Computed example of a mutant assay.
Amino acid sequence: MAAAAGGAGAVAGQQPLLGGAVGAVWAFAILRHTHIQQAEALKAQNPAACLLAIQCDLTPPPLLRRITRFI
């Protein structure tokens, strides 16, 4: 994590626009990770939510989602 921060800082010093983009992507990744952790914590507290999550995992995804998952 510290190496990524150092790399982003070096990029920002040479290319401010690219450094800003790297920082935005990094911030988005952190927010997404935090959101996933919070959602899983809420599911763990509620048995009904856990069952609904299992049901969603068992239903096959639509063809378009399966195709675009690898892109």
Rank of each mutant, 00 (worst) to 15 (best):
M1Q: 10
A2W: 12
A2T: 06
A2Q: 12
A3G: 14
A3K: 14
G6S: 01
G7K: 06
A8D: 02
A8K: 04
A10F: 01
A10G: 02
V11P: 00
V11R: 01
A12N: 05
A12V: 01
A12R: 00
A12E: 00
A12K: 00
Q14Y: 02
Q14F: 02
P16T: 01
L17D: 06
L18K: 05
G19H: 01
G20H: 10
G20C: 10
G20Q: 06
V22I: 11
V22S: 00
V22A: 00
G23V: 12
W26L: 05
W26Q: 03
W26D: 07
A27P: 02
A27Y: 03
A27K: 08
F28E: 05
F28A: 13
F28C: 04
A29G: 05
A29R: 06
A29M: 06
I30Y: 00
L31V: 03
H33C: 03
H33G: 09
H33I: 04
T34L: 08
H35W: 11
H35C: 07
Q37D: 15
Q37N: 13
A41R: 14
A41C: 09
L42Q: 11
L42A: 13
K43D: 13
K43V: 07
A44C: 04
A44S: 11
Q45Y: 00
N46G: 02
A48W: 09
A48K: 15
A49I: 10
C50G: 08
C50Q: 15
C50V: 13
C50T: 07
C50D: 12
L51K: 08
A53K: 15
A53F: 08
A53Q: 07
Q55Y: 14
C56V: 08
C56Y: 08
C56N: 13
C56A: 14
D57N: 11
D57Y: 11
L58Q: 13
L58M: 15
T59C: 09
P60T: 09
P60K: 15
P60F: 14
P60H: 15
P61K: 02
L63S: 02
L64Y: 07
R65S: 14
R66Y: 05
R66D: 02
I67R: 07
T68F: 10
R69H: 07
R69I: 08
I71D: 09
I71R: 11
I71K: 10
I71L: 14
